[in-house]
Design a protein around this nucleic acid. Structure first.
Lengths: 226, 226
DNA sequence: ACACCCAATATTGTCAACAATTTGAAATTT
DNA sequence: AAATTTCAAATTGTTGACAATATTGGGTGT
């Protein structure tokens, strides 16, 4: 949801939000060629705000636009997806390091409480799933904002987050290891609470590296096709 | 310059290019509030393409847009500028590592030749300057593309490169150390040529860390105000 | 059957006018 | 004199129509 606290909520904002959601949820599927007039009819928009929204989605890597030829929903190859995890690793490692330096005690306590509710959810799903709702409920989202490195958070949450999330709907990177993943989250938060930036960075990188390895394994087993 | 090899060059592309150049060069200065009609008159554009260009520039962090209230050229505080260097450090470190894995021998040879011409230029300026023209002549630009991590290159060259460059016009991060900086560039390329990704990453991170320290030192001495 | 060409059509890019919101100056109140 | 309110003008957001370009389907040649 775009921030409307101090700004008006334009039709372009609205268009952006609903299109992004449609992409993340797969209603607009990777590789789909989508036309402006179709989108206008489907989402009750006019072309001006729609084009603004398309521009924003393109800048976030969710769409590919070709002048005069139209728009496609981005479709990452498996190797491109793996590359995203390489980038996440170094950037989220930095975010964890800076979160250790800058998060308030209250924020850390709140994050621990969120992890408790994550655990309750895993138990409820009998250890089969670890799904985090988009936004403040999501661990990685919280670390990025906790880093207080505005540009880093913006890049992580603006450029990478939704691309990764787009694929999360179709694959679980914590499959077979939700309790393990949760445990890793807890250890990262503990390092942050101890203000040990170096350890927090190390643990976060290891955590994302494990998710990447998980994906690579699935690709190799032929289980994962995109 | 936008890629026109396989696409038409729209008026929006044109608007984007000239505005970005104006920002990087300081013709549109940090903090400037700029109006659409002014820009249209000044750059001989109409509002449609201009608004597209403004959207792109916003996504690159060069502008801040507020709905119904207009556009400002971004103005980074000194601490924000330093944070950019933290991000560059981890991302360009990764780029160097991946360049060591993926650059062709020819590309490496070409890069060395470019460094030779950099050296000639420093000598010509009597060791007072190390200025690299935007694009392929720029060492960092070359490493990012050499990484063959498309998304990484896009983020580095799309999101960070011009923001950093915007400030480079007003400060030299290799001030007092052009020969040293060039030497560091050479060592990074040597590590890449040796296909030693770990060393390339380490050296690149150190190099950017040194540039950051240089900036921090200037800030502390009160020499650098933005 | 395949490759190429061309014209018509569909779709995207641009434009100018109207709608919506903010800004700043003037008037009013304290 | 300083603070607040009001309102017209300036500026940004949106809309629908026209301009520009790519796509597609049909026709022709090999």
């Amino acid at each position: 949801m775009s921030d409307i606290a101090s700004q008006t909520y334009t039709r372009a904002d609205e268009a952006f939000d609903c299109l992004q959601t449609a992409i993340v949820k797969g209603d607009l599927a990777p590789g789909d060629k989508i036309g402006e007039l179709d989108l206008c009819a489907r989402f009750d928009l006019t072309r001006g705000p729609l084009r603004e929204a398309l521009g924003r989605l393109e800048s976030r890597g969710l769409l590919v636009r070709r002048p005069h030829a139209g728009v496609k929903v981005v479709s990452l190859s498996t190797s491109e997806l793996v590359e995203l995890y390489r980038i996440r690793e170094v950037m989220e490692g930095l975010a964890a390091r800076q979160a250790a330096e800058r998060m308030t005690d209250q924020e850390i306590a709140d994050l621990k409480a969120t992890l408790d509710s994550h655990e309750a959810m895993i138990d409820e799903a009998r250890g089969q799933a670890y799904y985090q709702a988009e936004g403040d409920y999501d661990f990685h989202h919280r670390i990025a904002t906790g880093s207080r490195n505005t540009k880093l958070a913006q890049m992580l949450l603006g450029d990478l987050y939704y691309m990764v999330r787009m694929y999360r709907y179709r694959l679980s990177t914590s499959a077979g290891r939700p309790h393990l993943a949760l445990g890793e989250h807890r250890r990262i938060v503990e390092a942050i609470a101890q203000r040990d930036g170096e350890l927090a960075e190390f643990l976060m990188k290891r955590h994302i590296n494990a998710a990447r390895k998980n994906i690579e394994k699935k690709i190799q087993e032929g289980v994962l096709t995109i």
